[in-house]
Amino acid sequence: MSTSLLSPSDTTGFGGIVKEYAWQWQNQPLRVVYETLGNGSPILLLPAFSSVSTRAEMAQLAKLLSPHFQVVAVDWPGFGQSSRPSLDYRPEIYQQFLADFVQAVFTTPIIVIAAGHASSYVLQLAHQQPDTFSKIVLVAPTWRGPLPTMGANPQVGGIVRGLVRSPILGQILYKLNTTPSFLRFMYRRHVFVDTAKLTPNFIAQKWQTTQKPGARFASAAFVTGNIDAVHNQSDFLALVESLTVPLMVIIGESSPPKSRTEMQTVAALPKVSSVVLPGSLGMHEEYPQEVFAAIDDFLHTPQN
């Protein structure tokens, strides 16, 4: 488990130093790409899980933070520029990856900013290893994949996941669900608020992310709920209540109603700081300046 610099020709997410973390899962080697920018106390940025997940969605927030912190943003295994093998993606993979990555890259407790579905993994690691993080910021936190949110049971999710993983039919189904027009529809529905930001170039970049070899495997696991780290709200809330470090929750005022209600339930817990800002599930990418302004004092306030 080592790190190395990538060649200058590699595409970067936000103009930082791009590195590679060599990781293994059950003897399967994976190349995990991450990027660092700035100097100072370390902050880990974890992008949301989605079919278009990449550290680049954290780019503007990283740039805003970099004058004060050393920012590290990572592409989850199976997403972004990281390896995308045909693993049976499930929570154990990401739980182990996050623990190993933090241990390999950082030497002191760190601040972590996690978007969307990454929240559960952060909370689990904080529960298991309380000295890992010094502060936690959850931006539009979610814990349930799209199909379970729509009411599909695990059996239906398993069937869909199996179809998408199949060699020929799976590729066809995946391509139909990642066309530029479908990506635009999904962004307008519950990711971005300002549709003027969904330019042809923006959508084209997102589409290119979905078309990398092996992209459908981790994406199908997310959509069908196979990488849901918790399976009910009470477990998510219990993780929050078990925290021994400061927590701040950022809620998008235009989040889907069910998701917003669940976020507000978290925000109502004792000792949880919270704020409601413009945006929806992609607010960390759409409104990075507002997110930065909201968390700035929290990040700099000394712990009691």
Rank of each mutant, 00 (worst) to 15 (best):
M1I: 10
S2M: 14
S7K: 02
P8R: 03
S9K: 02
F14V: 02
G16N: 01
G16V: 06
G16D: 05
K19M: 14
W23M: 00
Q24K: 09
P29Y: 01
P29G: 06
L30A: 13
V33E: 04
G38P: 15
G38W: 12
G38T: 11
V52A: 15
S53L: 12
A56T: 15
L61M: 15
P67H: 05
P67V: 03
V71L: 00
V71Q: 01
S82L: 13
P85E: 15
L87H: 10
P91V: 09
E92Q: 03
I93W: 04
Y94F: 14
V102S: 02
V102Y: 01
Q103V: 04
F106N: 10
F106R: 05
P109I: 06
I113D: 01
A115R: 01
V122G: 01
V122M: 05
L123G: 05
Q124I: 03
A126N: 08
Q129L: 09
Q129F: 13
I136R: 00
V137E: 00
T142A: 15
T142M: 14
T149G: 12
T149C: 10
M150D: 13
A152W: 02
P154K: 03
P154Q: 14
V156H: 01
L163A: 14
P167V: 11
L169A: 15
G170M: 03
G170Y: 01
L176N: 07
H190A: 13
F192A: 15
D194F: 13
T199F: 05
A204L: 08
T209F: 02
T210F: 09
K212F: 10
A215E: 11
R216F: 13
V223Y: 07
D228M: 04
V230Q: 06
V230E: 07
Q233N: 12
F236K: 03
A238P: 11
S242R: 14
S242G: 08
S242E: 10
V245F: 03
P246W: 09
P246A: 04
R260I: 08
T265I: 13
A267D: 13
A268D: 08
V276P: 01
L281I: 02
G282R: 01
Y287D: 05
A294E: 07
A294N: 05
D297Y: 02
N304I: 04
